[in-house]
Design a protein around this nucleic acid. Structure first.
Lengths: 242, 242
DNA sequence: TGTACTAATGACCGCACGGTAACTAAGATG
DNA sequence: CATCTTAGTTACCGTGCGGTCATTAGTACA
């Protein structure tokens, strides 16, 4: 975008930038470019967008691979917020509030053209960093959530009974549906609701109302615990405890 | 796979196949190949896997693009089952049973390396067929489900009050979390539970237990309907009505 | 067994890619 | 204003791509 006016007006004197500034421009441009066309995009095309020659890229990044690695860094590591983990663990706030706050903040960070597409492109390419990112999400978001559900449902703590794979999967459900929303928007270009906060609110309420039934079902099936109520009807989790 | 032994043993006489058989081999090989490396994969590499020369591909498909279009056809249109739509609409069966049967059958069709990856590759490329496929899913699966939820929650029919975007989104949630499971498995190579049927069961129970609360929340907020019960606690949907 | 048909191939074309080397010019310094 | 540093450029290389053309060889039939 920023480079378009340059490449449009054909003849312009060469801009001699401070290396830091140029590098910043290149990285930003590379994020946008690779998000759009994927990592098979040519360096000449990237350079054209930046209004420089493709050889100039090599002054800053010795190979294409190094540039791509910088893009990963920029997109992943640069956008994870440790406060999220703190927020999710804060039991002075109702779980519903925590989840809504977290996912609003999280979506603000990732519900973007660049982030979603680069994440998906990198996954298909089999880049290790995406796997590691998802393991981070599982360890810092999904599994903590599953443990919270244990507590909210009155089931034994994970120190007594470790998390079942199906319980982790259950907790992935909330994360997954919101991420899939982002994929529908930025990969498949579908219309999605404008009011993301409302979507988050609905998803969290749905999740917290439904998850306990499913948790009990799981532990009935695997631990042979007698059903606390007939017909394995679930008592909904408390919401808005004001 | 089938072609590997051929390319391994270096010198082999040329196999002269019936064109139909060769075309079949090419298409199957192309599906597997493009699923693995993406549509930027080279025709020479594909041909090598098939144990033929890349020129031979041009005898069957005039351009690479035509071959790729055949791959799309093969993967999408070839694997959609109209019975799914019938099943989902069959109100003689409990909604829970319908959803479980549908998603078990659906996952059997799409929870595969080839399908998931080609679907994602194609989406990133911006191929129209994937958008059309998702619109099909929305019209034939997601929106019908949202309408069922209206009925199950005692809310007005969609003939009186059209579906809100947020209601459609709510119904996408179930679809999304299961699709995202497939993406975690086949794109990001994460460990997921072995027992998919159990995962589906848990997801459906969770969804049906939680969705009514969320539906009511939505209609409170937008239609200003007075809450039927204090504290907008939801009555769970009936399950297993035997 | 010779022959006609055609599936399959080897050699080649133009082009765009990632990457290298030599040159040019912007701007700070004396 | 001459000089020096270095950001940026022009020109080029080997390689592999999608696609074309003339040739080779497997097989069914006379």
């Amino acid at each position: 975008m920023a480079a378009e006016n340059r490449s449009a007006s054909s003849k312009q004197k060469r801009r001699r930038l401070d290396p830091e500034d140029r590098e910043r421009e290149i990285i930003d441009g590379a994020v946008a470019f690779f998000a759009e066309v994927g990592f098979d995009g040519g360096l000449r095309d990237l350079a054209k967008r930046l209004g420089i020659t493709h050889q100039n890229l090599f002054r800053y990044f010795p190979t294409k691979e190094v540039l791509i690695d910088r893009v990963y860094e920029e997109v992943y590591l640069g956008r994870w917020q440790v406060e999220w983990e703190v927020l999710l663990a804060d039991r002075t706030i109702a779980l519903e509030q925590r989840l809504m706050q977290f996912y609003r903040s999280y979506l603000q960070a990732i519900f973007r053209y660049d982030w979603v597409r680069i994440f998906v492109f990198a996954g298909l390419k089999g880049v290790g960093i995406t796997q590691r990112y998802l393991e981070l999400v599982q360890a810092r978001v999904v599994e903590p959530l599953a443990r919270e559900l244990r507590a909210a449902t009155g089931l034994p703590d994970t120190s007594e009974v470790p998390l079942l794979p199906e319980e982790t999967e259950l907790a992935w459900g909330l994360h997954g549906e919101l991420f899939y929303l982002a994929v529908r928007r930025w990969v498949y270009e579908m219309k999605v609701p404008d009011d993301l906060d409302m979507v988050v609110r609905v998803a969290v309420v749905k999740f917290l109302s439904g998850a306990p039934s499913a948790m009990r079902l799981l532990h009935e099936g695997t631990l042979r615990t007698p059903a606390p109520q007939p017909g394995r009807r679930a008592r909904p989790v408390r919401r808005n405890p004001r």
